[in-house]
Write a protein that binds this DNA or RNA. Structure first.
Lengths: 155, 155
DNA sequence: ATCGCTGCAAAAATTTTGCAGGTAA
DNA sequence: TTACCTGCAAAATTTTTGCAGCGAT
């Protein structure tokens, strides 16, 4: 089932099936939102997604509603870079999409980090506190190589 | 210099001095905001701070402006629990206030964590990526003991 | 007496909601 | 055909800005 070239990425067909299973519908705006996310390898804000839609395909409100639905369905993951703007990234198949980012505080370039580190620390925190179902959000910030360079080459 | 009972917490006098050094002023609203933060051991949102002011002492706009200034002066630290609401906590003297929280996803109780994510891993990320001045934001989420209990005792 | 700070009003920016009509299944 | 989805408008939030007057130093 479903194994084209794009590998682990969620495909439109998958999402359509999952939508149908919940008696929701695959529509042009939702396709377009997913395409926009597929075209980028880092999280996009609502406005960035909206801007990426060809021909202003749908209303901004529809993007909001789509992202709410897709997040609830766990088709996308929401990330927060501490600036109050929610950013969304396509979840990958077969995992919960849990990972972290390294963001340049100057030019906002985003590096995807594959490792997730604090699991052991998380376990310890869970057992110390008595909390269950403990998860975490972790993002790194710093100055990327280009932005360290005084030369004014647009970063 | 300055050593009353409240120990490592920033005192009003300290902040007044720091303000004066930057030719800013210690005013009643700023005092009240600091008092509100002192009265709580977990981060407060702008609206919570505003609500905590006695007698609606100042305008909401002033709270916004105060928090911007105090954050810039590093008198307070801003935290983000992933819900798009900025929360502020009084910084402690002598350290940068860097720490993390464990937040109940059901009742929003906040546990202050003293541990910090291993700096060594952060170093490794920095050297792998070439980023400088790398920092991070890390918050934990889970279900607190009271909220695990089905008994309806308000949490 | 400065010059920073505040309140008020208003603008700007972001997100949600209601409803009539369009459309996927 | 059903009921989900969308556009449009409007409301509700959240945050920022302008400006005249107040007030800390």
């Amino acid at each position: 089932m479903n194994s084209h070239g794009d590998g682990v990425r969620v495909t439109g067909t998958d999402v359509a099936d999952r939508l149908r299973r919940q008696s929701r519908r695959m529509t042009a705006p939702r396709q377009a939102v997913l395409d926009a996310l597929r075209g980028h390898d880092h999280p996009l804000s609502i406005k960035e997604i909206f801007a990426a839609l060809t021909n202003q395909l749908c209303d901004l409100v529809t993007v909001y509603r789509s992202m709410h639905l897709l997040e609830e369905m766990r088709v996308v993951n929401r990330f927060d870079f501490g600036d109050g703007v929610a950013r969304y990234e396509l979840a990958k198949e077969g995992d919960d999409g849990h990972h972290h980012h390294l963001i340049c505080t100057s030019c906002a370039v985003v590096i995807e980090l594959d490792d997730c580190f604090p699991h052991e620390l998380q376990q310890r925190i869970a057992s110390h506190s008595g909390f269950k179902a403990v998860t975490h959000r972790l993002e790194f910030f710093g100055l990327c190589p280009r932005c360290q360079d005084p030369t004014p080459s647009r970063c």
